[in-house]
Amino acid sequence: MKSMNLTLKIWRQANAQAKGEMKTYSLSGINDHMSFLEMLDVLNEDLVKKGEEPVAFDHDCREGICGACSLVINGRPHGPLQTTTCQLHMRSFKDGDTIYIEPWRAKAFPVMKDLIVDRSAFDRIQQAGGYVSVNTGSAPDANEIPIGKQIADEAFNSATCIGCGACVAACKNASAMLFVGAKLSQYAMLPQGQVERKRRAEAMVAQMDKEGFGACTNTGACSAECPKEISMANIAMMNREFLTAKFTGEA
């Protein structure tokens, strides 16, 4: 177990309206087995004891699946490893390091406080059409819809998205196309998604544009930082879904 001293540069902002700034904190005696978020817990305990405002950050399951944690660490969403911030451990850093911690930056993800951003845009995009319209109780027997394993696996790969928003944070255009692409692809590949396929693609893309996300320039940064390794193929599929819907749909 190694102990390390760190300098932290953290974005502090009292609320959505306030002007924020980077503040410097020094922290000592950090153990390399700690998770990154536990390191912030230690900082916060120190701050409260000193009578200072603790740093607000989103986090919950701390096992890499809820998608709540959302820090840009040294300029990279979720830090140096391709995982969620909660799964990043301090052994990825060295004694004496200076670590920059910033919130996701996007017009569609406004900062609410310190490192917390509002990601409700993602929910609204899904409300626009990210579902199969099937009322409870009206489903046929599950095995009446056979789905080839390969398609099921591909759809699953898209479905693994945890909605953390790292793709938006990583993209130089703050584009949400990997997220929307993953959602659209899952339904586009599965037979259950066929009926509403065109309407869904048009509605979700329209909502995405309305939220103020940028457009994809295929740098691949989103996929390279995605903790679930969602592939760029999802964006291609979204483009195809949208263009097909726009130019062949009758509505």
Binding site: V72, N74, Y100, E102, R105, A106, K107, N173, G214
Partner: peptide, 11 residues
């Protein structure tokens, strides 16, 4: 316009 505030650190 989709990213009005840039990151301080470049990664």
């Amino acid at each position: 316009a989709a990213r009005p505030v840039e990151y301080v650190a470049n990664g």
